[in-house]
Amino acid sequence: MKIEIKIDENCVDPKVLIVTDKVTDEINEIVKRLSGGQSQTIAGFQGGQVVVLEPEEIVRIYAANGKVYAEAEQGTYLLRLRLYEMEQRLANKSFVRISNGEIINLKKVKGFDLSFTGTICVSLSNGTVTYVSRRYVSRIRHLLGI
């Protein structure tokens, strides 16, 4: 494979052009990586083992007792990253912070209960019930269009 870079001072946004005789798996992988569509795996620790977690598997990420945990459908895993680092890492995914100590996956939400005064009750797909803190309520309402 040849790689060529052309410097053009008039170019505002970088542009990638792939010239090929046919679309192969290698070309598809390159396009996927360049478009940011690659899956970003996360290392979780459980019982002395390292488990690779895909962001789609994670229901919520929360802090407890000075540690950060990822709760997935198959169990709870200890993470070595801080909560704000996980928030940055998952920013372009379907994750949203609901309190100072918790981030949820919007694709794993069963429903929002707005009947509580000042907070929002969130039911997750694995049966966990959590709450949006008052500080983040307006952000969630805006995100949901309410």
Rank of each mutant, 00 (worst) to 15 (best):
K2S: 10
I5R: 12
I5S: 05
I5A: 11
I7Q: 10
I7F: 13
D8A: 14
E9S: 15
N10Y: 15
C11S: 15
V12K: 14
D13C: 02
P14W: 05
P14F: 08
P14K: 08
P14Q: 10
P14I: 12
K15I: 14
K15E: 14
V16P: 07
V16T: 13
L17N: 12
L17M: 14
I18M: 10
V19E: 15
D21V: 11
D21W: 11
V23C: 01
V23K: 11
V23P: 02
V23N: 10
D25H: 08
I27V: 15
I27R: 11
E29M: 08
E29D: 12
R33I: 15
S35D: 13
S35P: 00
S35I: 03
G36W: 11
Q38S: 11
S39N: 15
T41M: 14
A43L: 12
A43I: 15
F45D: 02
F45P: 00
Q46K: 06
G48H: 13
G48N: 10
V50H: 01
V50W: 07
V52M: 15
L53G: 00
E54F: 01
E54A: 05
E54K: 03
P55I: 02
V59I: 15
Y62A: 01
Y62V: 01
Y62I: 05
A64L: 13
N65S: 13
N65D: 09
N65Q: 08
G66F: 02
G66V: 04
G66T: 02
K67F: 10
K67V: 03
V68G: 02
V68T: 10
V68N: 00
V68R: 01
Y69S: 03
Y69M: 00
A72V: 04
A72D: 01
E73Y: 06
Q74L: 07
T76S: 09
R80W: 04
R82G: 15
L83K: 08
Y84E: 11
Y84R: 09
E85M: 08
E85G: 09
M86D: 01
R89G: 04
L90A: 14
N92F: 11
N92M: 13
K93S: 10
S94A: 09
S94R: 11
R97E: 10
S99A: 14
N100H: 12
N100S: 13
N100D: 03
G101I: 05
E102N: 06
I103A: 01
I103V: 09
K107G: 00
V109A: 07
V109M: 00
V109D: 07
V109S: 06
K110L: 05
K110H: 05
K110N: 08
G111F: 06
L114N: 00
L114Q: 05
L114G: 07
S115F: 08
F116T: 12
F116V: 12
G118C: 10
T119M: 12
I120Y: 07
C121R: 15
N126K: 12
N126E: 13
G127I: 09
G127W: 08
Y131P: 02
V132R: 03
R134I: 06
Y136S: 07
Y136T: 09
I140H: 02
L143I: 11
I146V: 15
